[in-house]
Simulated assay, not measured.
Amino acid sequence: METNHKIALVTGGSRGLGRNSAIALSKKGIDVIVTYLSRKEEAEEVVQQIEANGCKAAALQLDAGNVSTFDSFAERLGDLLKEKWNRDQFDFLINNAGFGINAPIASTTEEQFDSLMNVHFKGVFFLTQKLLSRIADHGGVVNLSTGLTRFTTDGYGAYAAMKGAIEVLTKYMAKEFGKRGIRVNMVAPGAIATDFGGGVVRDNQDIRDHLGSLTALGRVGEVDDIGGIVASLCTPELGWVNAQRIEASGGMNL
């Protein structure tokens, strides 16, 4: 059945915040394409959940840290849009794909640094550049940042620095893309109970209790605390919000 739904592309949509964001988008009537690196079965499960919410969905493989693959990804995306939606463009790009490395600056290796840079900054920069012509006028981009750009936690210097670069880049994207009516914002989660960083916040009760004690609302975040914010930034109700950093940390380290 043909629909007039908007279409969102969520990178890293097979798990964690990406998965939750994709499903939240579908609850707002937005069709979703999720990308995955290796978890195809989990991505297909997300597709099924989105379809159960009455929206169209699809999954595409993407290595968000390998710029050399972006040309072929853009071609596959174009083919999918034409085949499934009879469109050449989509409406919202959610740059969510990522991972964490906990290592003090003194012991962070060049390999660790480069892997973080490739996914969290270089990949976001060039994937957005590559897909910009496929984002419809008056669409939007949502970049994922982190609360760690405001407060500090030992071992996340390199990761937070990449996200700090994303926060600056977001403002420049908003300035340049605004000529086409494309809004660009960022969501900065605090400590969230996912498999990020090996699931340390999700699985270690002592860490959960400690982080909760540092948070005004008295607990760590859950994935359901984030996806709805990402989805809301893709709705007309927030259509005048642009170039903003929205921290979703429950009031951590105030």
Results as ranks from 00 to 15, higher is better:
residue 210 H to K: 15
residue 246 I to L: 07
residue 174 A to S: 05
residue 165 A to I: 04
residue 24 A to N: 10
residue 187 V to Q: 03
residue 59 A to V: 10
residue 229 I to P: 02
residue 235 T to N: 05
residue 16 G to P: 01
residue 253 N to M: 15
residue 82 K to A: 14
residue 109 T to P: 08
residue 145 S to D: 09
residue 245 R to D: 09
residue 242 N to H: 06
residue 10 V to A: 00
residue 53 N to A: 14
residue 18 G to P: 00
residue 102 N to M: 14
residue 99 F to A: 12
residue 202 R to W: 07
residue 193 A to L: 03
residue 24 A to H: 06
residue 57 A to C: 06
residue 38 S to H: 15
residue 34 V to K: 05
residue 68 S to Q: 15
residue 13 G to T: 12
residue 39 R to H: 12
residue 167 E to V: 04
residue 54 G to F: 07
residue 243 A to I: 02
residue 71 D to Y: 13
residue 79 D to W: 11
residue 155 G to E: 01
residue 221 G to N: 02
residue 198 G to E: 13
residue 106 A to P: 05
residue 190 G to R: 00
residue 173 M to S: 01
residue 168 V to L: 15
residue 146 T to H: 00
residue 193 A to C: 04
residue 108 T to C: 04
residue 50 I to G: 14
residue 237 E to K: 11
residue 166 I to K: 11
residue 62 L to P: 01
residue 40 K to S: 08
residue 169 L to T: 07
residue 54 G to D: 12
residue 178 G to C: 02
residue 141 V to G: 00
residue 10 V to Y: 00
residue 212 G to T: 00
residue 119 V to S: 06
residue 217 L to Y: 10
residue 184 V to W: 01
residue 147 G to D: 05
residue 208 R to Q: 05
residue 186 M to Q: 11
residue 146 T to G: 03
residue 167 E to D: 05
residue 219 R to T: 01
residue 215 T to C: 09
residue 66 N to D: 15
residue 60 L to T: 03
residue 89 Q to F: 02
residue 167 E to H: 13
residue 143 N to Y: 06
residue 27 K to S: 10
residue 106 A to W: 06
residue 97 A to T: 05
residue 52 A to M: 11
residue 126 F to Q: 09
residue 188 A to I: 08
residue 96 N to H: 02
residue 126 F to R: 09
residue 210 H to I: 15
residue 107 S to E: 12
residue 230 V to A: 02
residue 137 D to V: 07
residue 187 V to P: 02
residue 196 F to S: 01
residue 135 I to D: 11
residue 154 D to T: 15
residue 62 L to H: 01
residue 22 A to H: 04
residue 201 V to R: 03
residue 223 V to S: 09
residue 42 E to S: 15
residue 135 I to E: 04
residue 115 S to N: 08
residue 249 S to F: 09
residue 202 R to M: 09
residue 167 E to L: 06
residue 90 F to I: 07
residue 3 T to V: 13
residue 150 R to L: 12
residue 251 G to R: 11
residue 159 Y to D: 08
residue 200 V to R: 09
residue 82 K to H: 10
residue 137 D to Q: 03
residue 247 E to H: 13
residue 168 V to T: 15
residue 59 A to L: 00
residue 222 E to K: 13
residue 104 P to H: 04
residue 207 I to Y: 11
residue 154 D to P: 11
residue 139 G to H: 08
residue 111 E to R: 05
residue 97 A to M: 05
residue 248 A to H: 13
residue 83 E to H: 14
residue 236 P to C: 01
residue 47 V to F: 12
residue 155 G to F: 00
residue 56 K to T: 01
residue 194 T to P: 02
residue 122 K to A: 03
residue 171 K to T: 09
residue 62 L to F: 02
residue 122 K to G: 06
residue 104 P to S: 12
residue 203 D to C: 12
residue 188 A to K: 08
residue 250 G to C: 02
residue 5 H to F: 11
residue 67 V to I: 12
residue 126 F to I: 15
residue 40 K to N: 06
residue 172 Y to I: 14
residue 203 D to L: 10
residue 140 G to P: 00
residue 34 V to T: 07
residue 206 D to A: 11
residue 202 R to G: 10
residue 143 N to H: 10
residue 254 L to F: 13
residue 40 K to L: 08
residue 139 G to C: 08
residue 98 G to V: 02
residue 247 E to K: 10
residue 123 G to V: 00
residue 222 E to Y: 14
residue 14 S to P: 00
